[in-house]
Design a binder for these strands. Sequence first.
DNA 1: GGAGCTTTGTGACCTACATCACATTTAAAG
DNA 2: CTTTAAATGTGATGTAGGTCACAAAGCTCC
Lengths: 190, 190
Amino acid sequence: MEAKEILKAHIAKLTILTDEQFDYFFSHFKKKSFQKGQAIITEGDPVDCEYFVISGCLKSFYINDDLKMFILQFAMPTWWASDYNALYNHTKATINVDCITDAEVLCLTDADREKLCKELHNAEHFFRWRTNKGYVAAQKRLLSFMNNNVKYRYEELLKLYPELYNIVPKNLIAAYLGVSRETLSRLYNA
Amino acid sequence: MEAKEILKAHIAKLTILTDEQFDYFFSHFKKKSFQKGQAIITEGDPVDCEYFVISGCLKSFYINDDLKMFILQFAMPTWWASDYNALYNHTKATINVDCITDAEVLCLTDADREKLCKELHNAEHFFRWRTNKGYVAAQKRLLSFMNNNVKYRYEELLKLYPELYNIVPKNLIAAYLGVSRETLSRLYNA
DNA sequence: GGAGCTTTGTGACCTACATCACATTTAAAG
DNA sequence: CTTTAAATGTGATGTAGGTCACAAAGCTCC
């Protein structure tokens, strides 16, 4: 399936755009390809785009002062990723985004998103709902973090996104769960 | 300040509504008063409103199988609260909302929010941005959870919302931080 | 098909925080 | 003002998960 078709199907789940509206909407996206390991957003740099994943897998992550990595989000096809804090507030990136595998993405600048939201009421509707879903998911994850132990969270993650198992190395899964790779390893061995 | 003025000032921070538009917008809100300890949303019940706090303080929380409470959010004046998962998906509440102090709120039904978003483009704009901010805040909290110890998170919370210190008992602060009340107590004594 | 990466496994030991138990203080309510 | 409940303090002890160290696989790239 074409990038355009993938985005169209994605949008159609939350709102209705006529073909002409969608063509106009789509004309603001720029397709880019990245290689495994390549950085897309780097801490300290300005952020002007968000990214819609067509193929491959990204991660957004934070590195603390002890060089420990925490993964905020994996992004598989039809997921969006960026440093939304920096993007919305026009500040420098505090988190990083890079490629776990080779990846194709559609880039949308902050300015173009706001323009589209202004011009097409339904685009604003779409973005409102997309963020709603992200917000609810973030709250759920927070709750799971407080309530459940590592084993439960690991199984929950794989049940929710079984694709990740084959694509994402376990040390990154550990960084997503907020646990050391050693502890994760011991969960299913030993 | 009147409830109407408080909401008006709040909306004005994110979007522009004419006086007539705002009057229309406001006409969909219903003012309610609750007493300290009173439940607003109860797990298992249907959820049809979100709540804008005029005065007082609410909490949204989850009780797990061991009857342990986890606080998702405090809601002080000009904050919004609800079980957004249930509200958006028209499912039964999985979390609770109740009053830490006597409180006045403005209620907006899910149906009215969607109606307003359809009728007033700027209302949709407002709600998109409100949720954006919530999403970014939730991500930050998640990151802090993974990265920082209890002491740091406690101080971070009080620095961000010093009002809480005088209003919210420490056992509830502990439930927000995801830590036992004993551990929190030992942080600043002993 | 080795050289040199990245990823994973495993033991030994450490620590932040949980849990249980009970005392004490503070606040609410009759 | 007294009675009951809610919130807090503090000791003793338990445990999930962290950290460090080193070994063993897997990949990847000449």
